[in-house]
Amino acid sequence: MLLLKDIVPAAQNNIDTKFILLEKGRVTTEGQNKTCLALVADETAAVHFQLWGDECDAFETGDIINLTSGIFSYQRNSLVLRAGKRGKVEKVGEFTMAYVETPNMSEIRWIPDPNNSKKYIQDSVISLHSRIFPPMP
């Protein structure tokens, strides 16, 4: 199981991880499907997570969620983690997980690895915290 600080954007469903749901944005409809952007985190990092379809209503903040075969990739220029068609999200608990809000893996600029053009490496930090879900005062 990966820690969120170690996830790297890629065009494949290769991420197994566990996190706690911190915030949910507004549910929007894309074509036939509902989506909802959320802030999730573990003890090492935070990231934007996209809930899709029934997932939007199935989870609430404070839920601890297991993601299997998730994908971390660009969607309309923003970097989000999601289950995708081949991945799965499941509630495994609630409340009892510590988290940090920085770094946020979606707020990092990634560039292709000069040694391996198929891989991404971190270039620079765009923002320490989520610009969509600012930290609570």
Binding site: T61, G62, E94, F95, A98
Partner: peptide, 18 residues
């Protein structure tokens, strides 16, 4: 035991909600 002072707001909110 696990939540740090200054970062407790969300956990407190979830606790009261429940």
């Amino acid at each position: 035991t696990h939540v740090k002072l200054g970062h407790q707001k969300r956990h407190q909110m979830w606790f009261s909600r429940k």
